[in-house]
Design a protein around this nucleic acid. Structure first.
Lengths: 181, 181
DNA sequence: AATCACTTGCTTGTTGACAGCAAGTAACTC
DNA sequence: GAGTTACTTGCTGTCAACAAGCAAGTGATT
């Protein structure tokens, strides 16, 4: 992860990884089969940690509350584990390449995020907290798109992008557009 | 562009590029200095074309109308020039890597997008079309984040992502949240 | 009109770095 | 003591980058 943060996925070599870990140049290849395999494993590992984090942050909230809590949790994760957050973002971006071996992993994670959000909205509707008229899948798509874009922009230029302000705006927005009257 | 679409930036070789163009393996390096230099040039070239397209689509509209027209134009561009749209997206993602030589190019384009949108909002406010209370920069940030995320998701899984539906939802959203009462 | 100095546009030879594979080795396990 | 596990080392093909070339101009000079 440290090497990916410093050099990016392409300029990091398997030899550097093995030696940084205190082993030989061949270890990484031996363990993960290929460079892509290693990044796939790293992507899954960080995602797992992130999902635990998210679970704890959202708890058993539903609807708007869950969506707002998730935004707060993203911010916290980024504050407390900036290296993981940033590395995960770099990996997601790398997954855009047609040759990326962990493309399906990244796609799967996004798909799961989307279905989780849709479920929050549905539960929110059942609880009478979210307007009955909205389409959970549409909301989920917009929400996930916003999060993807926001984390991407933050990674590209952390200094010109205020995560917390952006999140507050979004939370206000969610309440305005989704709350049952 | 064709090679990037097929193999991604990393698995495309400079030799393949030169030979596909009907020249020698050394031409691409000779012309662009390095692989990164070539991708920088490609990124700028496609961006230029996209900006012409956008200019024509938005015309002299301002405020909400300009923002909705831009969404429509993105969709049109993607329909009419899917190769360019997709290649640009791959390049933007590649720019996330700390080692990418065209990182600044990509950051600059996003920054410009954001300031353009903020300007649309300000003009919309002057024209009394957009509520005076909203902060143009906040709106622009949310809007650009949404677009970045949406194009990313579309690229990752074009089949499970309905661009046009998503755009209609967003346009409705923009009107609801920004229109002067 | 012939020569010479220099540029442009492209090719080819070469080097060092890298991913991935295969054959090893050494310690540990049953 | 036979096999397994965990790791290393040697090797090969591929690649980016560089440097040296070369052929076809261009333009000034005599």
């Amino acid at each position: 992860m440290a090497l990916v943060l410093e050099h990016g996925t392409d300029k990091t070599t398997l030899a550097m990884i093995g030696e940084k870990a205190g082993y030989s140049r061949g270890l990484a290849t031996y363990r993960f089969g290929s460079k892509g395999g290693l990044y796939d494993a790293l992507c899954k590992s960080i995602s797992r940690h992130w999902l635990e984090y998210l679970k704890r942050g959202v708890g058993d909230k539903v609807g708007i509350e869950a969506m707002c809590a998730a935004l707060d949790t993203i911010y916290e994760f980024e504050q407390e584990s900036p290296q993981e957050a940033r590395a995960l973002e770099i990996l997601y971006c790398g997954a855009a390449s047609p040759s990326a071996e962990y493309q399906q992993t990244a796609v799967g994670i996004r798909r799961r995020q989307k279905s989780d959000v849709a479920e929050w909205v549905r539960r929110g509707q059942e609880a009478g907290q979210v307007r009955a008229g909205v389409d959970p899948d549409e909301v989920a798509t917009q929400y996930v798109a916003y999060i993807s874009g926001m984390t991407y922009l933050w990674m590209m230029s952390p200094d010109t992008f205020d995560f917390s302000v952006s999140n507050e705006v979004m939370k206000r927005h969610l309440k305005d557009s989704l709350a049952a009257s």
